[in-house]
Simulated scan of single mutants.
Amino acid sequence: MAVPLVLLHLAGAWFVYTAFTIRPAGSWDDEARAGIVLSCVLAIALSVIAAAITLPATIRRVMGPWWLAPPLLLGAAAAIQWSLRA
């Protein structure tokens, strides 16, 4: 289960990175704002999937509870960026 989770975390981190690096050229730049929102939505979706994989007790027992930290942090960062930029 570690390989799919690492891939989900990397993809989520990429979307959070893009959400934080996209800068609108002005108040009229709706495409940049849409890109930020899309990146945030995809990062949150990947975080929910990764958390759903990690939440069962059998997975946590084998892999450890620290695997819940990356999806929670990435999801929170994406939600904050979405609320600030949207």
Rank of each mutant, 00 (worst) to 15 (best):
P56L: 09
A25D: 14
L38Y: 04
P71E: 06
L10D: 15
D29F: 07
A43T: 04
I59W: 14
P70E: 04
W14G: 04
L7H: 15
R60P: 03
L46N: 00
W28Q: 11
F15E: 03
T58S: 15
L42V: 14
A25K: 15
W66Q: 03
L10N: 15
G64S: 06
P24I: 06
R23E: 13
C40D: 05
L38Q: 11
L10M: 15
L72C: 11
R61A: 14
A52H: 04
I36V: 14
A19G: 04
F15I: 00
S39R: 01
E31K: 14
A25C: 06
V41N: 12
V62G: 01
F15M: 02
L38V: 00
R60K: 14
A13M: 10
M63W: 06
W14D: 10
L68W: 00
A52S: 12
A57E: 11
T21K: 12
S27Q: 13
L72F: 11
L72K: 06
P65D: 14
I59F: 12
W14P: 00
V48P: 00
P70H: 05
W14M: 08
W14H: 09
L38I: 03
I22V: 13
D29Q: 10
V41Q: 14
P70I: 03
A32S: 15
M63A: 14
P65S: 14
A43S: 11
T54C: 05
